[in-house]
Amino acid sequence: MFATKDILSVWRKFDHFPMETLTKAWYFQKNSGIKQREVAQMKEHHEQYGITGNCFDLALWLLHEFEKEGIEAYPIGHDLGTPNAHVAIIAKNEEGHRYLCDLGDQWLNPVLVDADSEDYTDERLTGFFPAAEIQVQSAGDLFTVLYHRPNGKSSEQSFHLASIPIHEFWQAAEISQNTIKKRPLLECRVPYKHETAHWEFYDWESFLSTTEGLFNEPEAESIEQWCTRIHQKTGYDTKFLSEALNIYKKM
C-alpha cells in the first residue's frame, strides 16, 4: 500500500509543511489582484516567512514537484467552488497504479487506491494518517477513506479519481482563496513519543491528536502567546503570525 520510492522522494519534501488558512487571509489583504498564488510565489513566501498555505496551495505545489521529477500526477477533489472544497493529488507509479497524496489533510504517506493492484487491501492500515487507522474502499473511479480513531469514533471521506481539468482546478482555487472563513485554522504533523501526531489550531483553541487520545491545550491569553505557540510548532515567522491572527481577530 505504500508508495514507490520515486513518489515518496517528492512527498518527503513536504513532511514539515502545515496546512493552514492564515496565509490565505494574510495574502487576501496584501494583494488586490488574483488571490491564488503561483508556485514560484509560494516558494518565495516560504523562504521569507516559513509559510505554506491551504489545500489548494499545497496541491498545486506538490503537483509542480511531481511534474518536475517526471512523475505523472493530476488533481482531484470534491465540493469544488464551495466553502467545503477539498483537493488532493493522484500520483502514478511506473505501472500506472494510483496513489492518493493528500497534504491538505496532513497524511503521513500516500496510499494506494487501485483495487486491481496486487498490493491493494481494504484492511485497516497504520502509518498513513496521524492518530488514526485508515481503510481504503475503492471501486472504479470512486474511493472512500474510513478513519478509525483511538476513541472508537470513525469518519469517512470520498473522492472521485477522475482528473480535474487544470483550468477548472485553478478556477476552484481562486474561489477558495477568496472565501475567508472567520475561524483561523492550522494543522501540522509533530513528533510525539514514538509516533507522528497531529497538532491543530482552530478557532482560538489548540489540541494534539495521538494514538493515546486527544489532548486539549490551555487557551492562550493573547495574540502574542498564540504567535509563540504556533511558531514553536511550525517555525512560522512571528511577525507574519501576528499580522495574520490580527486579521482574524478583527473579523
Rank of each mutant, 00 (worst) to 15 (best):
D203M: 05
Y27A: 04
A115D: 11
A59D: 02
Y236A: 05
E65I: 05
F66W: 07
R12L: 10
I71R: 08
I247H: 11
F215D: 08
V87L: 07
L63P: 13
Y49R: 13
H198F: 10
F128S: 02
Q48N: 12
Y202S: 12
A25I: 07
Y248D: 02
H46N: 13
G70I: 07
S222I: 11
A3I: 05
Q36T: 13
A3Q: 06
E67A: 07
R124T: 04
T4Q: 11
K233H: 14
I175S: 04
G77C: 06
F207M: 14
L245P: 05
H97N: 12
L142S: 07
L60G: 12
D141S: 09
F169M: 15
E200Q: 13
D79N: 15
A25T: 01
K43N: 09
G81R: 01
K13S: 07
E187S: 05
I89L: 10
H97G: 00
K153A: 14
V190D: 02
G81P: 02
L80P: 03
F56M: 06
K92H: 02
A115K: 15
E224P: 00
S117M: 10
F128P: 01
V10S: 10
K5R: 12
T121G: 08
T21D: 08
Y248W: 04
H46P: 01
Q48Y: 07
H86Y: 06
P191M: 05
L100C: 08
D57W: 07
S176E: 09
N109Y: 09
F215Y: 15
A88I: 09
L241F: 04
E205Q: 14
P75E: 04
N93W: 10
R12T: 12
